[in-house]
């Protein structure tokens, strides 16, 4: 390995380590706000990582909102008692994608990831 290559690797490693990894915080998905950048509003896609952590047992819905959360799951079509693997919801807690494991162990996906666009401001 040349000196340049070794130096470049070390600098790239440091730079990449400083990059944001979008680690999810502990805010419940139902109450998080949508993020906005530029002319586009991306509603709650960023909450997917929170939901993925649910499958790892890292994140759990607060007790006071569990009933609402579970009723929203039922309304979206997820069978009672199914293990949720991942979900994405908007800022109001409305699901637009839920992945759950059915009784046979198969992972079922309802809905899909959608991005909401706001029109550009009038010139």
């Amino acid at each position: 390995m040349t000196h340049f290559h070794a130096d470049l690797r070390a600098r790239l490693l440091r730079l990449e380590a400083a990059a944001p990894d979008a680690a999810p915080d502990a805010a419940p998905a139902a109450t998080a706000a949508p993020r906005t950048h530029g002319k586009r509003t991306v509603a709650a896609v960023g909450l997917l990582s929170l939901a993925i952590l649910a499958s790892a047992g890292v994140f759990s819905e607060p007790a006071q909102s569990r009933a609402t959360y579970e009723s929203r799951l039922r309304d979206f079509g997820v069978p009672a008692g199914a293990e949720v693997v991942a979900f994405a919801s908007d800022a109001d807690g409305n699901f637009f994608m839920v992945m759950y494991r059915d009784s046979s162990g198969q992972v079922v996906t309802l809905g899909g990831v959608e991005r909401l666009h706001t029109p550009p401001p009038a010139p």
């Binding site: 990059a19 944001p20 990894d21 993020r35 990582s49």
Partner: peptide
Amino acid sequence: ARRMAMVLRDPDIAQDIAQS
């Protein structure tokens, strides 16, 4: 997510792509 930030040079887009 970090790799996408390095490639795309925009952390917001990188986060979207990582989640997708």
